[in-house]
């Protein structure tokens, strides 16, 4: 079709396409791309211009990030949280994806796959809240364990760093299972059999064959977990209590408690830069799968 298509034909196709595309993309521009661009502008002002207060351009909001150290420190702790959550998600999700793709067959595979990714499509806030019930002292986990175990245990994980990790891993592990399952399923079983019959140990097959071939899936899943976790604020608030202060919660505060929107915009924009950097760094590996 492209071979003899002239420029004119291309143009008329473009016109027809534009009519159908215009409403959707106008909407995206208005509600996503203009706001993201406007945020850059608002991150350079002293006061929000429409409040009636006098305002001027400034770099103070960014200076605050680089000089006070508190925001940079919080960003680092959010990055650390994201690393730990991603690590646990891969540790739990990859083996499960392997069992789903290579061990289970037929209807049981379909049913269990659906069961794994189903919670992910249910309300995230409610799922985090359900952990708050389980983890609190005198809560269900506590009572159950004490009923079974001969010695007294006191589980009081609520409002702690591990509680935040548990809640976030619970929220995001389905992503890893999904992406790893897709790339593991694409590995031909006969390749694995060939390697085994040529004398490769299970460990060698895993290390030299399965992990390299499923790497795009692992990386894609890791990015899908890492990126939202750096910006998480609801999970640390509900499960972390006073220990749950992260970069995301500080941004939330600027908009709903402190009302320093320009600073909030600058902090958000710095987070956006970090996110875009991670997406760009991961894209060569992910593209290999496409």
């Amino acid at each position: 079709m492209n071979g003899n298509s002239t420029l004119a034909a291309h143009r008329s196709q473009g016109m027809k396409a534009a009519q159908l595309l215009f409403p959707a993309y106008l909407w995206l521009v208005l509600a996503v791309f203009l706001p993201l661009s406007a945020m850059v502008f608002f991150s350079f002002v002293t006061e929000m211009p429409f409040t009636g207060k006098p305002w001027s351009m400034t770099v103070a909001n960014y200076a605050a990030f680089f000089t006070t150290g508190i925001y940079a420190k919080l960003l680092l702790s959010s990055l650390r949280l994201a690393f730990e959550v991603t690590f646990w998600c891969v540790v739990l999700g990859f083996p499960a994806a392997y069992v789903l793709a290579k061990v289970l067959k037929g209807r049981s595979r379909e049913a269990i796959f659906l069961l794994v990714i189903l919670p992910f499509w249910s309300n995230g806030l409610v799922r985090v809240f359900s952990w708050a019930m389980v983890l609190r002292s005198g809560g269900i986990l506590d009572t159950l364990l004490n009923a079974v175990l001969p010695f007294k245990v006191d589980i009081d994980l609520i409002y702690s760093y591990p509680a935040v990790i548990i809640g976030l891993v619970h929220s995001y592990v389905p992503y890893i299972v999904l992406t790893c399952y897709l790339s593991l399923q694409a590995i031909d079983d006969s390749v694995i059999e060939a390697a085994r019959s040529l004398g490769a140990s299970r460990f060698t097959v895993l290390r030299r064959l399965i992990i390299p071939l499923s790497l795009p899936g692992i990386v894609a899943g890791a990015v899908l977990v890492f990126v939202p976790v750096i910006g998480s604020f609801m999970e640390p608030r509900i499960l972390g209590g006073r220990t749950g202060t992260f970069y995301g919660t500080v941004i939330e505060d600027q908009f709903v408690a402190v009302f320093n929107w320009p600073l909030g915009a600058a902090l958000s924009f710095i987070l956006l830069a970090v996110v875009l950097f991670i997406l760009a760094a991961a894209s060569p590996v992910m593209r290999r799968s496409a």
Partner: peptide, 10 residues
């Protein structure tokens, strides 16, 4: 792909 916190505040 962009965290909802960023999109929402923007």
């Amino acid at each position: 792909a962009i965290p909802w916190l960023i999109t929402g505040t923007a």
